[in-house]
Nucleic acid binder design. Structure first.
Length: 282
DNA sequence: CTCATTTGACCTTG
DNA sequence: CAAGGTCAAATGAG
């Protein structure tokens, strides 16, 4: 990797980390000034999208424009440098972590017991969402050529956790996976943390979300599996993710305008999440 | 051997 | 009755 590009990618990640910390404080009801959650999320998404853009890809985005482009450099060209799996890995994890942050924020808005179900449309199946899932079923769906997979929390029995989720591919080219969460985690794995270890002597804690005053430990969440376990390659992920930046902007779906208008109305949404059936969940 | 996944059967709902 | 959701035995990976 070229040192200059490496520096830029790290700078983007650090910028995202700073905003993530601010977001964390906001979510914990600690005042940090007039910055809104929506602004912070935009900035974090931009930062990690920028970092992703520093990863080599066979089909680089040509028209990516930051949702806060007045503050961020526009991506106009890409250098033929070797891809950084670490940058890609942490960026994708951070974007997924944002989904969790959004859940927690919306729970505060609507009340913890209200949000029982939400969807996330992402270019990759949302498997690394901070919880440990066990697959318990797979079905052909009449309205879709793709099968739907059913997961429940690994701790469903041990800790009487009733959280489940369904993952289904809803579109090809670019691939879009819909992850539907039902129920709430009552297990110990409610916290989510992402740490990054590189191969050398450094150990960065790039981004970390906490809840309930304890941080996910290795014993609670023993693995944050490498993204390599999925069928598509790292390059595919980077490409698909960037392609979906544009795709998502064109198909931004909002079921509950009141929630999204609260703070998320300006989101460019790299990974879509919207709440449905909120009123029907009781 | 243990544990996660697969898959056909069964259950529930409209 | 059809479709979606869940169960549980069989299977496979480590």
């Amino acid at each position: 990797m070229f040192p200059e590009i490496d520096h830029k990618a790290v700078a983007a990640l650090l910028r995202g980390q700073g905003c993530a910390n601010s977001l964390k404080m906001l979510l914990e009801n600690r005042e940090i000034g007039s910055v809104s959650v929506g602004t912070l999320i935009n900035t974090i998404l931009d930062s990690f999208s920028l970092a992703l853009s520093f990863v080599d890809s066979p089909n680089p985005p040509q028209n990516y424009e930051s949702s806060s482009s007045q503050n961020m450099p526009r991506l106009v060209s890409r250098s033929p440098f070797k891809k950084s799996s670490i940058v890609l890995d942490v960026s994708i994890r951070a974007i997924h972590a944002l989904t969790i942050a959004r859940i927690q924020h919306c729970r505060k808005i609507c009340g913890v017991e209200v949000i029982e179900k939400y969807r996330d449309d992402s270019p990759t199946p949302l498997l690394e969402d901070g919880f440990v899932w066990r697959k318990y079923g797979q079905k052909n769906i009449k309205t879709s050529p793709h099968q739907r997979c059913y997961y429940r929390c690994t701790y469903a029995k041990d800790q009487n956790c009733n959280a489940t989720k369904r993952v289904q591919k809803i579109k090809d080219n670019p691939p879009v996976y819909r992850t539907t969460y039902v129920g709430q985690h009552t297990c110990e794995a409610l916290s989510y943390a992402v740490s990054l270890n590189n191969d050398d002597t450094h150990c960065f804690k790039m981004i970390q979300f906490e809840k309930c005053n304890h941080v996910m430990s290795e014993s609670v969440m023993p693995q944050l599996p490498s993204i390599n376990h999925q069928e598509i390659t790292m390059e595919d992920k980077a490409t698909d993710h960037m392609m979906n930046l544009e795709f998502d902007n064109n198909e931004f779906l909002v079921d509950d305008d009141k929630i999204w208008d609260y703070d998320f109305s300006s989101l460019s949404s790299t990974d879509l999440m919207f709440f449905d059936n909120i009123a029907a969940s009781d």
